[in-house]
Simulated scan of single mutants.
Amino acid sequence: MAGQVAAVSRNETYSFSKPNRDSVTLLTGLGVEGDVHAGETIRHQFRMTYEPDLPNLRQVHLMHEELFDELALKGFVVAAGQLGENITTRHVDLLGLPTGALLHLGEQAVLEVTGLRNPCAKINDFRKGLLGEVFEMDPVSGEFTFKSGVMAVVRHGGTVRPDDPIQVELPPLPHHPLERV
């Protein structure tokens, strides 16, 4: 089954949530046009203070809509854009993708997955206790599983709208699992 864009969101100012839009324009090498996190170098507030000149590997935040269903079963009502993502997907195993996977969205846009989103403590300001639900620790390995989506860079720009198809293109072998960026 091909994936699909469920919603698109952007915000011109720093805030936790991003309003849904009818469309967003992805700009090659920058991110979402008009979004506060767009840019060639790091644009996330906390990281800008100590790594301002590093490349922005977090130009676009994608989150799977299925997470909202999982959270609803635990009593958390969350909708697209409310956790700060730019693109909400459905039927794409974002967390299972390898580093470097390409996501073809709509007619032209191509994103390269760079890593996992590291959820911040602000998520508990949005919904108390939610931080503990967007990551879990494997009791055997002691490793964390981060569930709050993936980050990507724009390899080819274009307009993206809800209901646009998403095609996944895997990188050449060997595949490398996603790490936090």
Rank of each mutant, 00 (worst) to 15 (best):
M1S: 01
G3W: 00
G3D: 01
A6E: 13
A7Y: 07
V8S: 00
R10N: 06
R10Q: 11
N11T: 15
N11K: 13
E12L: 07
T13Y: 15
S15V: 10
S15L: 13
F16H: 15
F16Q: 10
K18T: 09
K18C: 05
P19Q: 13
P19Y: 12
V24L: 10
V24T: 08
L26H: 12
T28F: 08
G29M: 10
V32C: 05
V32H: 05
D35R: 08
V36M: 12
H37V: 06
H37Y: 14
A38D: 09
E40V: 14
E40A: 15
T41Y: 12
T41P: 08
I42T: 13
I42F: 01
H44C: 06
Q45A: 15
R47P: 00
T49W: 04
Y50L: 06
E51T: 10
E51V: 08
D53C: 07
L54T: 09
P55N: 05
N56F: 12
N56G: 12
L57T: 14
L57D: 13
L57S: 14
H61A: 12
L62P: 01
L62T: 04
E65H: 08
E66L: 10
L67N: 04
L67D: 05
L71Q: 07
A72Y: 06
G75E: 11
F76K: 06
F76D: 07
F76M: 04
V77L: 10
V78C: 04
V78K: 03
A79L: 14
Q82H: 11
N86E: 01
N86P: 05
I87M: 10
T88Y: 12
R90D: 00
R90H: 07
V92W: 03
G96E: 11
P98W: 06
H104G: 00
L105K: 01
L105C: 00
L105S: 00
G106K: 02
E107G: 02
E107N: 10
A109D: 13
V110M: 07
V110C: 08
E112R: 15
T114H: 10
G115V: 01
G115P: 01
C120L: 11
C120V: 08
C120A: 09
K122Y: 11
K122W: 12
N124W: 11
N124D: 15
F126Q: 11
R127G: 03
K128F: 11
G129R: 04
G129Q: 02
L130G: 08
L131N: 09
L131C: 10
G132V: 05
G132R: 11
E133I: 00
E133H: 13
F135L: 09
E136F: 06
D138H: 09
P139G: 02
G142A: 02
F146E: 09
K147T: 04
S148D: 03
S148P: 00
V150P: 04
V150G: 02
V150Y: 03
V154C: 07
V154H: 05
R155M: 09
R155A: 06
H156G: 09
G157M: 05
G157C: 03
G157Q: 03
T159V: 14
T159S: 07
V160R: 04
D163Y: 06
P165Q: 01
I166T: 00
Q167C: 00
E169F: 04
E169R: 13
L170E: 09
P171S: 04
P172L: 07
L173R: 09
P174H: 03
P174G: 04
E179P: 00
